[in-house]
Each structure stands twice: as structure tokens, then as C-alpha cells.
Simulated scan of single mutants.
Amino acid sequence: MSRPPLHALQGFVSAARSGNLSRAAESQHLTVSALSHQIRGLEERLGQRLFVRSARGVELTADGQGLFDRVAPHVDAIEQALQPYRARRDDVLTITLMPSFASSWLVPRLPRFLAAHPQIEINLQSTANKVDFERQTDIDAGLRYGPGEWPGLRAVHLFDDWVAPTISPELLARLGRPTLESLGEFPLLGAPGGRWSDWFAQFGGTAPKRFVANFDDSETLHRAAVEGLGIALGRLTLTRPMVEAGRLVTLFDERLKAEFAHYLVFPERSERHRGLQAFREWLLREAQDYAASAECVLARASAKPGRSGSAPAKPARRAR
């Protein structure tokens, strides 16, 4: 068997990590067709199927996983060895972030940055996968939601987040509006414990013994609320566009501070990237404005007499 070309192995490793041929092709500066051709050629050379392809992306087969485990460290070592000889372009900035944060917060604001800095090209890599900046040296920085400490990375605090019960207008019309005390009688999305326990402890009421459904990511949780499955304890940064569009309603003025906050993170190698410096300055201004608007909402809520949601509710009925 002839030796597989290095570029084919690089494309294979990139596709395996991203689980998406479009993103992998972009990172390799290829078309999706060219990358698919490389992978098919590699599969033919090895006589093994490396990926299972579906509408959602690509997943490694058992043979593909075995090849990845053996090859990826060597591809990474080559990439790291070549890195000092590659010129960094200060006018091209690659940012990784969660798809939900990209669509709900960054993208609506991004035209202002591009208008102020037309010379900078922004590449957004929307992925839920954790990025290894030491290996993925084509990525300059990331926007992350977390505790604020990531080993080997500089973390710049942007703003805190808040959570509050949100419901679809249709479900609200059908069930009526709960009070803080009766909220636990309504269909809730989540799981026993966690932030719901913190909510009931701080604002009163009794948590239900059974929740309608639980989800392991915020985007799916908020989508379930939009579809009328139940009331979600939604993160306001992500639900605000849905509320403004009339797809969700925030039930109370009360807010519970989220466990984590939003940060800009980057490795030491990106410290002097001029494009990142400009993006960081702009991002901090946008974050400050957003945080100020959130503080105004909280201030208005705390200034209201009594507790919000105290009007009598219609008898709550469980969603079927």
C-alpha cells in the first residue's frame, strides 16, 4: 500500500474533530467537495470506512477512531513544528463560540464591528465541541460561558447572565399566569435540584416532584419552551431575542443570577494579534452596554411594589 498523503491525513483529523465537513473544509482552506474527495481516497487506500455520514454531520467508525487515535498526535506535532514559520495575518480573526450564543447575541451586533473595522475578516466557528488552542492553532480566540478559569488561557470577563421562568404565549393563554407561589403546580422543564431549587428557595413556592422533561443543553431547552412543552428556567442572554420576537414570555420580574458568566478567552500566542485587540476593545464596549441594559431591567423590577406575579392565577393544568 502506498503511503497516504499528509494533506489527506490532515483533512481526516480535522473532520474527525469537528464532526462537520463544512467546518473542517474551511479550516483546511478547501471546498467540501475537495475534502470529501480526500477522505474517500484515504478510505480506498486503507480499505476501511472511516466515517458514517448523516444529515447532522460525520461520525468516526471503529476503524476511523483507531486511525484517529494513532495519527492525530503526529499531525498535531507537525502542525506545531510548522507554526513558527507561518506568518500570522492580523487582518484575519478566527473565533470559536457556541451556536446559541452566536445567533442570539454576537451576530446581531457584529455588523457594528465590521463597519468600524472593514479591513478585518471575521471567521466564526460555531461549535459545541471544546477547542484545544494548543492543537487548533488556526483559532485565535473563543467566547465561552463558564467559571472564568481555563488552564493556559487568558480570560476576560464580559458580563454575567441571569435566569428566569419563560413560557410560550400559547401555553400561557391555555394555562393562565402562575404566581411565584403557584409556579410549581405548572408544567416545568428541567430536573429536581439545580437552579430550580435555587429559584424556589429564593422566591418562594414549592418545586414539583416531577418535571415534564429535562435537557442537557440550553438551546434545546429553550426550543422546547417555544414549542409549548413547559416552562423553562431560561438564560436571558439566549431567550431575549425570542422574547422580543414574541415567541416566549418572561413570567416574572424576578431574576436569579446564573451560575456562570460570559468570557473572551485566548492563548498567549494571540495576545499581540491586532485584529483580536480591536475585537476585544469593541466587545468590551458592547458587553458593557448590554450589562447596563440588564441592570436597568433589574432596577425597574426591584423598584416595583410587592412581588410580581401576585395576581390570582387560573387553575394550573399539566401539559399532556
Rank of each mutant, 00 (worst) to 15 (best):
T239D: 05
E59L: 02
S126K: 14
R317A: 08
D63R: 06
S168D: 07
F133W: 11
F211V: 01
G152K: 04
A311S: 14
A173E: 13
Q28L: 09
E254K: 11
L251T: 01
S197V: 04
K257A: 12
E44M: 07
G41T: 13
A102G: 12
L172T: 08
I167Y: 11
I95D: 02
G47H: 11
R269T: 06
C296H: 00
P315Q: 02
D138W: 06
R317N: 00
F200T: 06
S2V: 07
L189M: 03
L158D: 01
R274H: 15
P165Q: 00
H29I: 08
A278S: 12
T250F: 00
G184M: 00
H117Y: 14
A155G: 03
G184T: 03
S36F: 09
R56S: 15
R23D: 15
L97G: 04
E244R: 13
R269L: 12
A55L: 14
N214F: 04
L171E: 02
F113S: 05
Q202V: 07
D132N: 08
T179E: 02
P187L: 05
G57D: 08
R3W: 14
R3Q: 15
E286T: 07
L97E: 05
I120Y: 13
G190R: 01
G41V: 05
Q202Y: 00
I95M: 08
T31L: 03
A102Q: 09
V58K: 05
A207W: 04
L124M: 15
G47R: 03
S2T: 11
L264I: 04
K314D: 02
V212Q: 03
R89M: 13
L124R: 09
A62W: 02
G142L: 05
E26G: 15
